[in-house]
Amino acid sequence: MAGTEHSEGLAFHPLEQFEITRLFGHGPIHWYTPTNATLWMALATLAIIVVFVLGSARRSMIPGRLQSLGEMAYDFIYKMVEDVTGHDGVKYFPMIMTLFVFILFTNLLGLLPASFTPTSHIAVTAILGFGVFLFVTLLGLAKHGVGFLGLFWMSDAPLILRPIIAVIEVISYFVRPVSHSIRLAGNIMAGHAVIKVFAAFAPLILISGIGVLVTPISILAIVAIYALEVLVAFIQAYVFTILTCVYLKDALHPGH
C-alpha cells in the first residue's frame, strides 16, 4: 500500500483478488449469503461431477479421455492410501479422495484469470486441516484408547530422553493441523499474489518509457510463474492428501 504514492498509475493490489464479495446485490455477508467463494466451490463441484460421474458414465472397457482422467486420479489416490496407511486404511479412501479432488479442482480453477481460489483462505484450509486432525485423533483414541498415546512415547529411545522426546512429539503433533492448513493456503496465496505483483508492472509501458523493458519481462515472468503455479496446484493437493494419509496411518498404527 505504500507503493501506491511512489508509482502513480500502477495499481498494486495483490490481495484484492482474495476478497470475498456477494454474488448478488449489496449488504453484509451472512453465513448463508452466496459469495464468489460459493460460486467457485460450486464450479469445482461441477467439474468434479463432469470428470468423475459423466466421464465414466459409459463404463467403457477402453476409456476415453475424461474416463481415463478419472481412473488415473482414482488409481493414484487409491495406491497412495494403500501404500501409506496399509490395507485397513482403504476404508477411508472416499474421504481422502474427496479432499484431494476438492483441493485439486479449486486450485486449478483458481488459476483461471479473474477467478477466486477458496483454498487461498485460511478459513477453508483450517477447516480442512483441523477437520483431518480431529478425525484422525478421535479415530486413534477410539481404536486404541490410551494406547494411542504410545505414539508420543518412543519405546526404542533411551529412558532418560523419552520424556523430552514425548514433549517434542506432543508439540509437533499439535502443530500438525496448523502447518497442514497454512501450507496449503500460504502456497496458493503466495503464488497468486506474486502473479498479481508482476501483473501490476505490466501496464508500465502505457505510463513511462522504461516500460518498454519492464513490460515484456513482467509478462514473461507471469507466464513462468503461472506454469509453476499449475505445478504447485498439483503438488499442494498431493502433499495435503499424502500428509492426511500419514496422519491416518499414525492413528491406525500408533506403534511406529
Binding site: H30, T35, V124, I127
Partner: peptide
C-alpha cells in the same frame, strides 16, 4: 466476518 460464510459453503 466472512469466516462463517466460507465455512458453511465449504
Amino acid at each position: 466476518s466472512t469466516f462463517p460464510n466460507q465455512i458453511f459453503w465449504l
